[in-house]
Simulated assay, not measured.
Amino acid sequence: MCSVQQRLLYQDEQLSITVAMASEAPVVTLTGQIDATNSPALAGVLASCRQNTGTNAAVRPDPCPYVDVDTGALTFIDVSGLRVLVMPTLPAGQRWIRLHNVTPTQRRLLRMMGWYYQPTVHHAPL
């Protein structure tokens, strides 16, 4: 049996970000709260995860086409955090974040912002 090792990438008083490298894409887990104070850090961590898709650059020299983000353990997210995850300024074909475990409250916020059908929201377990 193979175990997946998670690494802590970021932590502040409100938010913890961990990553596990899966065969296809990094799986980022968000725990806690995202607001304007830590959404820039979230954006940087996600961009870094996309670039650092493996330990051997010769295996995968290009950025990963997407990053899977598990939002199920978030207790709060404001519009600045949603913007980071949804990437509304990019055309749909250029978005590289896939959301997993989106809570009913998060879905409601996404619908209210008119973004629900724009991001890739996956309901399958990671």
Rank of each mutant, 00 (worst) to 15 (best):
L30M: 11
V84P: 00
V69I: 12
V45C: 04
Q106W: 06
D62G: 03
L74C: 09
I97L: 15
V102M: 11
I17A: 06
I34F: 07
T37R: 14
E24M: 03
R107Q: 14
A22L: 08
M113V: 12
C64S: 15
S16H: 02
V79S: 12
A58Y: 08
Y117L: 00
G81Y: 12
W96H: 14
I17D: 02
T55R: 10
V69C: 12
N38F: 02
S39E: 03
G114L: 09
V86H: 02
L42N: 13
L110C: 07
G93Y: 08
L99H: 08
P61T: 13
T120Q: 08
C49K: 08
A73I: 10
Y117W: 03
D78Y: 13
L30A: 06
V79R: 06
D35C: 06
M87L: 08
P26Q: 07
V67E: 15
G93M: 06
L74R: 07
N52Y: 00
L110S: 06
H123S: 15
A36G: 11
Q118R: 06
C64M: 14
A73R: 15
W115K: 09
V79I: 12
M1C: 09
P91E: 03
L30C: 10
Q11F: 06
Q33M: 14
Q33E: 15
M21N: 12
W96G: 00
L82D: 06
D70W: 00
G93C: 03
A92T: 08
V19M: 08
H122G: 04
G32L: 09
V79T: 13
V79A: 08
Q6T: 12
L99Q: 14
L74Q: 11
Q5D: 00
M87P: 01
T18I: 12
Q33Y: 09
M21T: 09
V121L: 05
V67M: 14
M21A: 12
Q51R: 12
P88A: 02
H122C: 00
A92E: 01
G72Q: 12
W115Q: 10
T71G: 13
A41C: 11
T75P: 00
D70Y: 00
I77C: 13
N101S: 09
Q51V: 06
D35Y: 05
P61H: 12
Q33N: 13
T89E: 14
Q33V: 05
